[in-house]
Design a protein around this nucleic acid. Structure first.
Lengths: 243, 243
DNA sequence: AATTTTTATTTGTCTGACATTTAAAAGTCT
DNA sequence: AGACTTTTAAATGTCAGACAAATAAAAATT
């Protein structure tokens, strides 16, 4: 691993990139121990604080973990699906909120991705996953539920649907898309009437999945997308001219 | 912003989380300047190196940017789609390589997501995007192309297809899925015969998009997925018993 | 008034030190 | 000899203070 002294970037950024490259290319393998901070400072010809800043950058991306003590040090971290989830959710959430992505755009993306899973989910969903969906539907029907709780349950429902595809890569990709939309969804106030409507569609989706009816699942999801987008439009309109 | 001294995590991690929360919740808005490192160390009651480690963690996630000089400092960064792309690609790539995700699983996820875009792309693709796809197909047909270059062009082709949906959120989500698969694809040696086959399917996809024929695009993508998975299986089999 | 010089602020980096954690080595007792 | 306790060494975590370098604003000069 080398660093280029003529490049304009910070030393700690360069060192982080050098180690990152070594991990991505496989020169450093999972659970391998990096040299100690003192050794790294010698190798790169920088001070220990600079090395530490580089290591903290990598730790922020879950690429390494550190352990104190005698046989401690920095180790290449096996990036778990869960770590990847939470990173993706953070990134997606900020991306939506900072770039003024319209509800329509986010909604379209979410349902497009979700419908991509639906076909697989109809084939492979387990009884457990179906039960989870039914349980969430039941929760959604309870009176006195706050909008936030309703949305959270909605996320859990769709999460189960996606997990039904039995493909962890798909689940990982969709976790970001679905959960990142929650703040946007929370801005919608759900009337009793609209909740009823959504729960009805959820029930239809669960029924279709139970029957493993691919076509019906897709149609129901399309209808749900439509309904959600109209709902958001109505809410936006009401905000503009509050009666 | 407060930090809990009784928590077992590193101080720099706690401080990073506190600032991260402030950004996500909107207490710190885009382009707002954070207090200087000296002020932050006072506020949190820690030393400057510790504050710096925290800031580097945030910089690694593109949440802040720093500027040297008189009116410099750390500023909340507007997370761009490009920043998000590259982060997602890094994460997805490592996720696939570190968790022994099978080619089949990754392939299934990729094409499921891609087919989700295809319908929208058939409706909205611009002439430019179609031209890009044609140009990549032309490049793929050139003799003497390395497998890596062929794969890179393949990625560019599919990227154009996805961008055709005209939904930046979808493009962002798919960039990770498609590009992260490139290392896996690179492990396949493409015979002249298989390249011909793939180029043929690419041409059919482009034709279908030109005609805005949603059904045909979907069918062609399904065929391409099938072909790719069979190809990978053959390669894997040949590796096991090299004649 | 325009240009140059100075100055103050802020991040980037270094040195050296001490605290804390942890596993292994050494020592001790039964 | 074996089990337990103590010591030690290595590593990260944290701190303090200093200087370098960049940069924009203020001051001085032409």
């Amino acid at each position: 691993m080398k660093i280029s002294p003529q490049k304009p970037a910070d030393l700690s950024a360069q060192i982080a990139q050098a180690i990152r490259d070594a991990i991505i290319s496989g020169k450093l393998i999972v659970d391998e121990r990096l040299p100690s901070e003192a050794e790294l400072s010698d190798q790169f010809g920088v001070s220990r604080p600079t090395v530490r800043e580089a290591l903290k950058r990598l730790a922020a991306q879950s690429l390494i973990r550190t352990q104190r003590g005698a046989s401690g040090g920095a180790f290449v971290n096996r990036l778990s699906f869960e770590d990847a989830y939470s990173q993706q959710i953070t990134t997606s959430t900020l991306l939506l909120s900072m770039n003024a992505v319209s509800f329509d755009t986010a909604c379209e993306a979410r349902f497009a991705l979700e419908r991509a899973c639906a076909a697989l989910s109809a084939k492979r969903r387990t009884a457990d996953q179906l039960a989870t969906m039914r349980a969430e539907i039941h929760r959604q029907a309870q009176p006195g539920l706050t909008d936030e709780a309703f949305c959270a349950s909605d996320v859990a429902f769709h999460r189960a649907l996606v997990d039904g595809a039995g493909n962890p890569v798909l689940s990982y990709q969709l976790a970001g898309a679905v959960e990142a939309m929650q703040p946007l969804m929370n801005m919608i106030t759900f009337t009793a009437r609209s909740r009823e409507e959504i729960i009805g569609l959820h029930n239809q989706i669960a029924d279709a999945l139970e029957a493993r009816d691919t076509v019906k699942v897709d149609a129901n999801l399309a209808e749900l997308e439509n309904y959600t987008r109209n709902l958001a439009q109505d809410v936006a309109q009401q905000r503009r001219k509050p009666a």
